[in-house]
Design a protein around this nucleic acid. Structure first.
Length: 429
RNA sequence: GUGGGCGUAGCUCAAUGGUAGAGCACCGGGUUGUGGUCCCGGGGGUUGUGGGUUCGAGCCCCAUCGCCCACCCCA
């Protein structure tokens, strides 16, 4: 028997890594006052038909349950969140600031950084139109990186605004029919050769002059602020607001101490789906990995799913790419946490004493164990040391007669006699 | 869905078409009051699977499954 393609076993070593990452995610999200929620891993297929594109639905894990209902393993958390929020929209105090670490599934051929199953930190804010919310959202994403030991040398946040792209394309007179293909081309700017980029836009029906302007914006040879400055009188109100919002956004990121992580990047448009405002993606500065994290504002989604008109924004941060990066940087724990101490009896008649001492140590909050069948001090000590356990308590008849034991620090090799009552306090963890 | 690379012990890898091996790991012993280095021994494999060629296949051929990489797409 082998595991299914694209699924993972978590042996204790991998589980230690997973726990390490999840713990960091939870600590950070809670630090910003967000609360954790979860939903069912299995949902009605209908939930995804409504919101997600054909491509997503084609890659769902679906089946008919025994009642004949079409069901799907959740491929993303947002529809579940939207459904949950819609259910209690009127009674939930706004803004709603929730996070979750769901396991998500997709039926698709796997490749580097992409499996059929993964965990994804989802952080969402619902009912906040202020750009301060956008800034806080990105700050959480970046703070998770920092919490795990990654720095501005490792991670870059590329940020953009869908309204700005839309406004720019309007000024460049890109036609309605060309918009979708133009977004796709912009999204590919950093992944395809220059000629291909030109070809994609040209095929979409974009003029040569417009292609040149789009290229300059994507490449960053002109900042979006410089580009829009002489044109602000020609654009509509939403675009003017978007440019102003982006400036405020950057100011807020600077206030929060993240300015070195953030770069405006016109080529970040986040697929075609449902984003309506500021969007961002987190990348490894060195590697060629896919995005660590992506998100942004999706103000129309809750309503489009039949809920009330609530603005919303959020991101998803998968565990697979992030873990690849942490392993690459040596920032993952090498071994699962073990006991603090093993209590080793000298001779079989002291095994009962060793068990009693072990019980007392556990009551004192120490992670303690004693061998089921003591094999001799030498063997038990060897096994304990090999497992990386820092302390051994050796219970010998002479010492025990004085209500004392030997406490050995396996890391230094130093050993001392300790009164039984003082033992727990001597084991530093 | 398309293309490419790779499948030998738990892991890393050997083995002209001629008896399947090593290191690490694991288990036991040397050593029933003191570990990590050391010495000795042991379990482990239908060489991913199924066919074919051959006197003989881990090796050659075909198929299939799995893993990896890229493409497509991206929540």
């Amino acid at each position: 028997m082998q595991k299914l393609k694209g699924f993972r076993d978590f042996f204790p070593e991998e589980m230690a890594e997973r726990t390490h990452v999840f713990d960091a995610m939870r600590r950070v999200a809670k630090r910003y006052g967000f609360v954790e929620y979860d939903g069912p891993p299995l949902e009605s297929l209908e939930l995804y038909r409504k919101k997600s594109g054909d491509e997503i639905v084609a890659q769902l894990y679906t089946f008919k349950d025994k009642g004949g209902r079409d069901v799907a393993l959740r491929p993303e958390m947002t529809p579940t969140l939207a459904r949950m929020v819609a259910t209690r929209a009127n009674s939930l105090q706004k803004p709603i600031r929730w996070f979750s670490i769901p396991q998500l599934f997709r039926y698709e051929r796997n490749q580097r950084g992409r499996l059929r199953e993964h965990f994804q930190l989802n952080v969402d804010i619902i009912g906040a139109r202020e750009v301060e919310a956008d800034a806080e959202l990105l700050a959480i994403g970046l703070d998770v990186q920092r919490e795990l030991g990654l720095t501005k040398e490792d991670v870059v946040a590329r940020v953009n605004d869908r309204r700005i792209v839309s406004g720019a394309l309007g000024l460049l007179e890109v036609s309605e029919e060309s918009i979708a293909a133009t977004y796709t081309a912009i999204d590919k700017f950093r992944k395809v050769p220059d000629e291909t980029f030109t070809e994609l836009l040209s095929d979409a029906g974009v003029s040569d002059d417009a292609i040149e302007e789009i290229r300059k914006l994507c490449a960053g040879s002109v900042s979006v602020f410089e580009w829009f400055a002489p044109r602000l009188d020609d654009v509509d109100e939403p675009t003017r607001k978007a440019v102003a919002d982006l400036e405020t956004y950057l100011a807020r990121m600077t206030e929060a101490g993240f300015e070195d992580f953030v770069e405006v990047d016109f080529s970040i448009v986040r697929g075609l789906a449902y984003y309506t405002g500021i969007v961002f993606e987190l990348y490894d500065r060195k590697g060629k990995e896919r995005a660590i994290c992506g998100g942004g504002r999706y103000d129309d989604l809750v309503q489009s799913l039949g809920g009330p008109d609530l603005s919303a924004l959020g991101f998803g941060m998968g565990d697979v790419v992030l873990s690849l990066m942490l392993r690459d940087r040596g920032l993952m724990p090498k071994a699962p946490p073990r006991s603090d101490v093993v209590v080793i009896p000298v001779g079989a008649e002291l095994a009962v004493i060793a068990r009693l001492i072990t019980t007392e140590l556990r009551r004192a909050g120490k992670r303690a164990e004693t061998p089921y069948s003591p094999a001799g001090v030498g063997k038990d000590l060897k096994a304990t040391g090999q497992r990386g356990i820092p302390y051994a308590v050796i219970v010998g008849p002479e010492e025990w007669a004085a209500h004392e034991v030997n406490l050995k620090d396996l890391r230094t090799g130093k050993q001392s006699r300790v009164a039984i009552d003082a033992l727990a306090a001597e084991i530093k963890t």
